[in-house]
Protein backbone atom coordinates (compact mmCIF):
# COMPACT_ATOMS: atom_id res chain seq x y z
CA UNK A 1 0.00 0.00 0.00
CA UNK A 2 2.91 2.31 0.65
CA UNK A 3 3.73 3.32 -2.92
CA UNK A 4 0.50 2.61 -4.73
CA UNK A 5 -1.80 4.22 -2.23
CA UNK A 6 -2.16 7.44 -4.16
CA UNK A 7 -2.67 5.95 -7.62
CA UNK A 8 -4.44 2.86 -6.39
CA UNK A 9 -3.21 -0.61 -7.15
CA UNK A 10 -6.22 -2.44 -5.81
CA UNK A 11 -8.96 -3.37 -8.27
CA UNK A 12 -11.53 -1.28 -6.44
CA UNK A 13 -9.54 1.92 -6.49
CA UNK A 14 -8.62 1.38 -10.13
CA UNK A 15 -12.26 0.92 -11.07
CA UNK A 16 -13.10 4.02 -9.11
CA UNK A 17 -10.39 5.96 -10.91
CA UNK A 18 -11.58 4.86 -14.32
CA UNK A 19 -15.17 5.60 -13.43
CA UNK A 20 -14.25 9.18 -12.58
CA UNK A 21 -12.20 9.57 -15.75
CA UNK A 22 -15.00 8.20 -17.94
CA UNK A 23 -17.45 10.51 -16.19
CA UNK A 24 -15.18 13.45 -16.96
CA UNK A 25 -14.92 12.48 -20.62
CA UNK A 26 -18.72 12.14 -20.89
CA UNK A 27 -19.27 15.56 -19.36
CA UNK A 28 -16.96 17.12 -21.92
CA UNK A 29 -17.86 15.09 -24.99
CA UNK A 30 -21.62 14.60 -24.61
CA UNK A 31 -22.70 18.15 -25.57
CA UNK A 32 -20.55 17.95 -28.70
CA UNK A 33 -21.99 14.54 -29.52
CA UNK A 34 -25.46 15.93 -28.99
CA UNK A 35 -24.74 18.75 -31.42
CA UNK A 36 -23.67 16.15 -33.95
CA UNK A 37 -26.86 14.12 -33.35
CA UNK A 38 -28.97 17.24 -33.76
CA UNK A 39 -27.23 18.02 -37.04
CA UNK A 40 -28.60 14.76 -38.48
CA UNK A 41 -32.30 15.40 -37.81
CA UNK A 42 -34.91 17.69 -39.29
CA UNK A 43 -35.89 20.93 -37.57
CA UNK A 44 -39.22 19.38 -36.66
CA UNK A 45 -37.57 16.51 -34.81
CA UNK A 46 -35.28 18.88 -32.98
CA UNK A 47 -38.10 21.16 -31.92
CA UNK A 48 -40.25 18.27 -30.67
CA UNK A 49 -38.58 17.03 -27.46
CA UNK A 50 -37.14 14.74 -26.50
CA UNK A 51 -34.37 14.70 -29.06
CA UNK A 52 -33.25 11.16 -29.93
CA UNK A 53 -29.87 10.08 -28.61
CA UNK A 54 -28.85 8.46 -31.90
CA UNK A 55 -28.04 10.13 -35.24
CA UNK A 56 -31.02 10.38 -37.61
CA UNK A 57 -31.23 9.79 -41.39
CA UNK A 58 -31.19 13.48 -42.40
CA UNK A 59 -27.43 13.91 -41.94
CA UNK A 60 -26.23 13.94 -45.58
CA UNK A 61 -29.13 16.12 -46.65
CA UNK A 62 -28.54 18.65 -43.89
CA UNK A 63 -24.81 18.88 -44.58
CA UNK A 64 -25.34 19.18 -48.34
CA UNK A 65 -27.92 21.93 -47.86
CA UNK A 66 -25.73 23.88 -45.47
CA UNK A 67 -22.57 23.66 -47.52
CA UNK A 68 -23.86 23.97 -51.07
CA UNK A 69 -27.41 25.29 -50.81
CA UNK A 70 -26.92 28.25 -48.54
CA UNK A 71 -28.73 29.27 -45.42
CA UNK A 72 -31.72 31.53 -45.84
CA UNK A 73 -31.31 33.57 -42.67
CA UNK A 74 -27.85 34.76 -43.73
CA UNK A 75 -28.79 35.72 -47.25
CA UNK A 76 -28.39 32.29 -48.75
CA UNK A 77 -24.66 32.14 -48.23
CA UNK A 78 -23.32 28.58 -48.02
CA UNK A 79 -21.29 27.28 -45.13
CA UNK A 80 -18.56 26.41 -47.63
CA UNK A 81 -18.07 30.11 -48.31
CA UNK A 82 -18.04 30.83 -44.57
CA UNK A 83 -15.42 28.16 -43.98
CA UNK A 84 -13.29 29.65 -46.76
CA UNK A 85 -13.59 33.15 -45.29
CA UNK A 86 -12.66 31.96 -41.83
CA UNK A 87 -9.74 29.91 -43.09
CA UNK A 88 -8.33 32.90 -44.97
CA UNK A 89 -8.73 35.12 -41.92
CA UNK A 90 -7.29 32.61 -39.43
CA UNK A 91 -4.35 31.73 -41.69
CA UNK A 92 -3.76 35.39 -42.48
CA UNK A 93 -3.69 36.35 -38.84
CA UNK A 94 -1.51 33.40 -37.77
CA UNK A 95 1.02 33.69 -40.59
CA UNK A 96 1.05 37.49 -40.49
CA UNK A 97 1.58 37.59 -36.75
CA UNK A 98 4.44 35.10 -36.97
CA UNK A 99 6.18 36.98 -39.78
CA UNK A 100 5.84 40.38 -38.13
CA UNK A 101 6.78 39.23 -34.65
CA UNK A 102 9.80 37.26 -35.89
CA UNK A 103 11.02 40.20 -37.92
CA UNK A 104 10.67 42.64 -35.04
CA UNK A 105 12.22 40.23 -32.51
CA UNK A 106 15.14 39.63 -34.91
CA UNK A 107 15.73 43.36 -35.18
CA UNK A 108 15.52 43.92 -31.44
CA UNK A 109 17.76 41.04 -30.42
CA UNK A 110 20.45 40.94 -33.10
CA UNK A 111 20.90 44.53 -34.25
CA UNK A 112 22.19 47.60 -32.50
CA UNK A 113 20.34 50.70 -33.60
CA UNK A 114 19.32 53.95 -31.89
CA UNK A 115 16.21 53.68 -29.72
CA UNK A 116 16.36 49.89 -29.84
CA UNK A 117 15.14 49.49 -26.28
CA UNK A 118 12.57 52.25 -26.79
CA UNK A 119 11.17 50.23 -29.69
CA UNK A 120 11.05 47.13 -27.56
CA UNK A 121 9.19 48.89 -24.78
CA UNK A 122 6.79 50.49 -27.23
CA UNK A 123 5.89 47.04 -28.50
CA UNK A 124 5.77 45.67 -25.00
CA UNK A 125 3.40 48.28 -23.53
CA UNK A 126 0.81 47.58 -26.21
CA UNK A 127 0.27 44.35 -24.27
CA UNK A 128 -1.22 46.44 -21.50
CA UNK A 129 -4.17 47.64 -23.59
CA UNK A 130 -6.94 45.30 -24.77
CA UNK A 131 -7.91 45.43 -28.44
CA UNK A 132 -11.35 46.79 -27.51
CA UNK A 133 -9.82 50.07 -26.31
CA UNK A 134 -8.72 51.03 -29.80
CA UNK A 135 -11.54 49.39 -31.67
CA UNK A 136 -13.42 52.57 -32.68
CA UNK A 137 -10.39 54.47 -34.01
CA UNK A 138 -9.30 51.32 -35.81
CA UNK A 139 -12.76 51.02 -37.36
CA UNK A 140 -12.56 54.63 -38.55
CA UNK A 141 -9.20 54.00 -40.14
CA UNK A 142 -10.51 50.91 -41.90
CA UNK A 143 -13.54 52.82 -43.22
CA UNK A 144 -11.31 55.53 -44.63
CA UNK A 145 -9.02 52.98 -46.23
CA UNK A 146 -12.14 51.36 -47.82
CA UNK A 147 -11.31 48.07 -46.21
CA UNK A 148 -14.80 47.26 -44.91
CA UNK A 149 -15.90 43.83 -46.16
CA UNK A 150 -12.42 42.84 -47.32
CA UNK A 151 -10.03 40.15 -46.14
CA UNK A 152 -7.38 42.81 -45.57
CA UNK A 153 -9.77 44.65 -43.27
CA UNK A 154 -10.45 41.46 -41.36
CA UNK A 155 -6.79 40.53 -40.99
CA UNK A 156 -4.63 43.66 -40.79
CA UNK A 157 -5.80 45.23 -37.51
CA UNK A 158 -5.26 41.94 -35.68
CA UNK A 159 -1.89 41.12 -37.14
CA UNK A 160 0.51 42.94 -34.79
CA UNK A 161 1.35 40.84 -31.78
CA UNK A 162 3.32 41.97 -28.77
CA UNK A 163 2.99 38.54 -27.18
CA UNK A 164 4.51 36.67 -30.11
CA UNK A 165 7.25 39.29 -30.43
CA UNK A 166 8.08 38.81 -26.78
CA UNK A 167 8.13 35.02 -27.15
CA UNK A 168 10.48 35.15 -30.14
CA UNK A 169 12.66 37.72 -28.40
CA UNK A 170 13.07 35.40 -25.42
CA UNK A 171 13.86 32.47 -27.71
CA UNK A 172 16.35 34.43 -29.81
CA UNK A 173 18.11 35.55 -26.67
CA UNK A 174 18.82 31.93 -25.76
CA UNK A 175 20.70 31.40 -29.04
CA UNK A 176 24.39 31.34 -28.08
CA UNK A 177 26.29 34.35 -29.30
CA UNK A 178 29.00 32.04 -30.67
CA UNK A 179 26.52 30.63 -33.17
CA UNK A 180 26.05 34.10 -34.61
CA UNK A 181 29.81 34.65 -34.63
CA UNK A 182 30.48 31.29 -36.27
CA UNK A 183 28.00 32.23 -38.98
CA UNK A 184 29.71 35.60 -39.44
CA UNK A 185 33.09 33.90 -39.80
CA UNK A 186 31.50 31.47 -42.25
CA UNK A 187 30.42 34.49 -44.26
CA UNK A 188 26.68 34.57 -43.56
CA UNK A 189 25.12 38.01 -43.71
CA UNK A 190 22.06 38.98 -41.64
CA UNK A 191 19.59 37.57 -44.14
CA UNK A 192 21.39 34.25 -44.54
CA UNK A 193 21.81 33.88 -40.80
CA UNK A 194 18.07 34.38 -40.39
CA UNK A 195 17.14 31.97 -43.15
CA UNK A 196 19.74 29.24 -42.64
CA UNK A 197 20.13 29.19 -38.88
CA UNK A 198 17.53 31.16 -36.95
CA UNK A 199 14.49 29.99 -38.91
CA UNK A 200 15.26 26.23 -38.72
CA UNK A 201 15.99 26.54 -35.01
CA UNK A 202 12.70 28.36 -34.43
CA UNK A 203 10.53 25.78 -36.23
CA UNK A 204 9.10 24.15 -33.13
CA UNK A 205 8.31 27.53 -31.63
CA UNK A 206 6.68 28.62 -34.86
CA UNK A 207 4.55 25.46 -34.93
CA UNK A 208 3.37 25.92 -31.36
CA UNK A 209 2.60 29.57 -31.96
CA UNK A 210 0.83 28.77 -35.22
CA UNK A 211 -1.62 26.45 -33.47
CA UNK A 212 -2.44 29.01 -30.81
CA UNK A 213 -2.74 31.90 -33.27
CA UNK A 214 -4.80 29.92 -35.78
CA UNK A 215 -7.39 29.17 -33.12
CA UNK A 216 -7.23 32.78 -31.95
CA UNK A 217 -7.96 33.93 -35.50
CA UNK A 218 -10.65 31.30 -36.08
CA UNK A 219 -12.66 32.31 -33.02
CA UNK A 220 -12.45 36.10 -33.49
CA UNK A 221 -15.86 37.61 -32.86
CA UNK A 222 -16.00 41.32 -32.12
CA UNK A 223 -13.80 42.61 -34.94
CA UNK A 224 -15.31 40.53 -37.77
CA UNK A 225 -18.75 41.54 -36.52
CA UNK A 226 -17.85 45.22 -36.90
CA UNK A 227 -15.89 45.11 -40.14
CA UNK A 228 -18.25 42.94 -42.23
CA UNK A 229 -21.62 44.10 -43.50
CA UNK A 230 -22.04 41.72 -46.40
CA UNK A 231 -23.17 38.22 -45.47
CA UNK A 232 -20.76 36.71 -47.97
CA UNK A 233 -17.77 38.15 -46.06
CA UNK A 234 -18.85 36.81 -42.66
CA UNK A 235 -16.69 34.44 -40.73
CA UNK A 236 -18.32 31.25 -39.56
CA UNK A 237 -18.63 32.40 -35.95
CA UNK A 238 -20.48 35.56 -36.94
CA UNK A 239 -22.73 33.67 -39.37
CA UNK A 240 -23.58 31.19 -36.67
CA UNK A 241 -24.73 34.02 -34.44
CA UNK A 242 -26.76 35.55 -37.25
CA UNK A 243 -28.53 32.28 -38.02
CA UNK A 244 -30.07 32.13 -34.58
CA UNK A 245 -33.28 34.08 -34.27
CA UNK A 246 -35.07 35.00 -31.07
CA UNK A 247 -38.00 32.91 -32.15
CA UNK A 248 -37.23 29.21 -32.10
CA UNK A 249 -39.44 28.51 -35.07
CA UNK A 250 -37.49 30.94 -37.28
CA UNK A 251 -34.17 29.26 -36.57
CA UNK A 252 -33.01 26.43 -38.85
CA UNK A 253 -31.65 24.51 -35.87
CA UNK A 254 -30.51 21.56 -37.96
CA UNK A 255 -28.34 23.87 -40.08
CA UNK A 256 -27.08 25.71 -37.00
CA UNK A 257 -25.91 22.38 -35.63
CA UNK A 258 -24.25 21.47 -38.94
CA UNK A 259 -22.48 24.84 -38.95
CA UNK A 260 -21.36 24.35 -35.36
CA UNK A 261 -19.83 20.99 -36.19
CA UNK A 262 -18.09 22.41 -39.25
CA UNK A 263 -16.87 25.39 -37.24
CA UNK A 264 -15.07 23.30 -34.65
CA UNK A 265 -13.59 20.75 -37.06
CA UNK A 266 -10.73 22.81 -38.61
CA UNK A 267 -9.23 23.99 -35.29
CA UNK A 268 -9.38 20.41 -34.00
CA UNK A 269 -7.71 19.23 -37.20
CA UNK A 270 -4.92 21.80 -36.80
CA UNK A 271 -4.32 20.78 -33.20
CA UNK A 272 -4.32 17.06 -33.98
CA UNK A 273 -2.08 17.37 -37.03
CA UNK A 274 0.39 19.68 -35.36
CA UNK A 275 0.23 18.12 -31.93
CA UNK A 276 3.61 16.43 -32.25
CA UNK A 277 5.28 19.71 -33.14
CA UNK A 278 3.17 21.59 -30.67
CA UNK A 279 4.21 19.48 -27.71
CA UNK A 280 7.82 19.46 -28.90
CA UNK A 281 7.79 23.23 -29.04
CA UNK A 282 6.42 23.52 -25.56
CA UNK A 283 8.78 21.12 -23.82
CA UNK A 284 11.94 21.07 -25.88
CA UNK A 285 14.38 23.80 -26.61
CA UNK A 286 16.65 22.44 -29.24
CA UNK A 287 20.00 24.11 -28.99
Amino acid sequence: MADGAMIGTSLRSRLMGHFLLVLGVIVVVFPIYYVFVASTHTVQTILRPPLPLLPGPEGPANYAEAIFGGVGRIGGVGVGRLLWNTTVVALGIAVGKIIISMASAYAIVFFRFPLRMACFWLIFITLMLPVEVRILPTYKVMVELHLIDTYAGLILPLIASATATLLFRQFFMTIPNELLEAARVDGAGPWRFFRDILLPLSLTNIAALFVILFIYGWTQYLWPLLITNSNSMNTIVIALRKMISFADADTPWNLVMVTSILAILPPILVVVLMQRWFVKGLVETEK
Binding site: E178, L179, E181, A182, I197, P200, L201, K287
Partner: peptide, 10 residues
Amino acid sequence: VFQNYALYPH
Protein backbone atom coordinates in the same frame (compact mmCIF):
# COMPACT_ATOMS: atom_id res chain seq x y z
CA VAL B 1 37.26 27.36 -33.66
CA PHE B 2 35.16 28.37 -30.66
CA GLN B 3 35.39 27.17 -27.10
CA ASN B 4 31.91 25.64 -27.14
CA TYR B 5 32.37 24.65 -30.82
CA ALA B 6 29.33 26.69 -31.97
CA LEU B 7 28.19 23.97 -34.34
CA TYR B 8 24.86 24.61 -36.07
CA PRO B 9 22.59 22.24 -34.13
CA HIS B 10 20.10 21.63 -36.96
